[in-house]
Write a protein that binds this DNA or RNA. Structure first.
Lengths: 258, 258
DNA sequence: TGTGGTGCAATGGTCAGACCAGTAATTGGT
DNA sequence: ACCAATTACTGGTCTGACCATTGCACCACA
């Protein structure tokens, strides 16, 4: 049998390859720990292999304790891998809110390197995905309808994730992922406010556009620079927001824990 | 479905059971190490299972290194049963050697920033601690007595930890810490070899000295630069070590014990 | 209104038979 | 005696079907 060019890219149709591809997807953060991955029949279509081969592939991952399978339910990614998943850092945040800006500092560093490597190492396929993610986000913002924050945040996240994946460094992807999760879980409310305002939103949009262009153009230095600026301005915007809410709080005499 | 009494004795028709039964047969000496066991089709009849289930069972034994399979030839019982049980994390690194260098790449980035911030933000107290850690390590290396690896590794780690703590960014400290733990747990053996050799050890010592001087002098750019060089050369040394051990493995060839 | 059963659809688990792809011994010709 | 083609194995993959368990939506009953 002859393989189509697309299938050649996808890899050979052997259980080892199936396991490798799935493991890579998990490593890349496409399938996350605890998540229920698609049914065997769906994975067959997606990976272009028979169910028998797919099942042998899953068997490999199962024996490596990477997934857990229950009949009638499905296969879930084991929560063993996630070196950072349940981060002890959460406690830090509860005790010292200032840590937020420390986090943004580290994240800027990683996003910068991520953009740099993406511009340098990204394949044409990577660039297509990045552009697609960018367009999805840009299209959503440009539509006249009232902007919903949650979907936009998801698109935003998908865009940055695509860039980090193009760096082809799974450790970087995971570290970044865990920091982003940490950020969102701690200050999602603030991010919400950021998206709601005209000024910040447009600034973010412009930075996203420049970031996309630099990465796709392969300009590594420029990409890193834009990514750093992006995170820096987000940090500044959050600082302003914080100062403002403090003023409001003081004047309104409100005590609201968040 | 109702199983006949014979099948109840033989066990249920699941791949896990197939693997267990075959393993027992090997343990009982029915199939001996090095021996070619019956073809899959014959085993199907004998174990009363379909070929798909049998193959999944064989897949289990293969992942446990109990058998070895070659297309067009058959499956042979492996020479010795693997009594050593390694951590699932090691598994990941064994199958994806590149991940190690991805990790080092990220760690270099963080160590660089850590040194940079330490030089810029470090208090006089921080510098005192850093210098003390450095001296403890340097003194240990300079003493004539034969160098023990474990204590040295601990002193080394303490030195880097002191620097990261001087950055006054807890997120950076924690992220770096977890990455270092991951590194040591996966390639401690390699690191051991690094310390054991005269050349690499002296290079590392010189870099540590320069790193210490730059941080204490408050030269942020220089500190970052030295930290990056430090991690880069560690990465290169590990690469060389890897290549070398591969050469040794190849030249040693097989000495078959039967 | 709530609650417990019941049916249905989706999931993983197993099966049978066919064909593809490598291996190695056999065979036949030179 | 040698070498190439044949051939009868081996494991590897695919297809489509059916079984067993799960979870959820639905509905009758209290």
């Amino acid at each position: 049998m002859t393989l189509s060019s697309e299938e050649q890219v996808a890899g050979r149709r052997t259980p080892e390859n199936v396991a490798a591809r799935l493991e890579q997807l998990i490593l890349d953060g496409v399938f996350r720990p605890g998540q229920l991955l698609p049914s065997e029949r769906r994975l067959c279509e997606r990976l272009k292999v028979s169910r028998a081969s797919l099942r042998e592939g899953l068997r490999i991952l199962r024996s490596k304790q990477i997934i857990d399978t229950r009949q009638g339910h499905g296969s879930t990614v084991a929560s063993l891998l996630p070196m950072h998943q349940q981060s002890p850092l959460m406690h830090l945040f509860n005790d010292h809110p200032r840590t937020l800006f420390d986090l943004l500092e580290v994240r800027a560093l990683l996003e910068g390197e991520s953009a740099f490597l993406a511009a340098r190492r990204g394949t044409s396929m990577d660039r297509v995905v990045i552009t697609r993610r960018y367009r999805e986000m840009a299209d959503y913002v440009e539509q006249a309808a009232p902007i919903e924050v949650e979907p936009l945040a998801r698109l935003d996240h998908a865009f940055h994730l695509a860039i980090s994946q193009a760096s082809h460094n799974p450790v970087l992807v995971h570290t970044l992922q865990s920091l982003t999760d940490l950020l969102l879980s701690s200050v999602f409310a603030s991010v919400k406010h950021l998206y709601h305002r005209e000024g910040p939103r447009e600034m973010i949009n412009r930075q996203h556009a420049r970031l996309h262009d630099a990465v796709v153009a392969g300009d590594a230095e420029q990409a890193k620079q834009v990514a750093l600026e992006h995170l820096t301005s987000i940090s500044e915007l959050l600082r302003e927001l914080e100062a403002e809410s403090e003023r409001l709080e003081r004047s309104a005499m409100r005590i609201e824990p968040w």
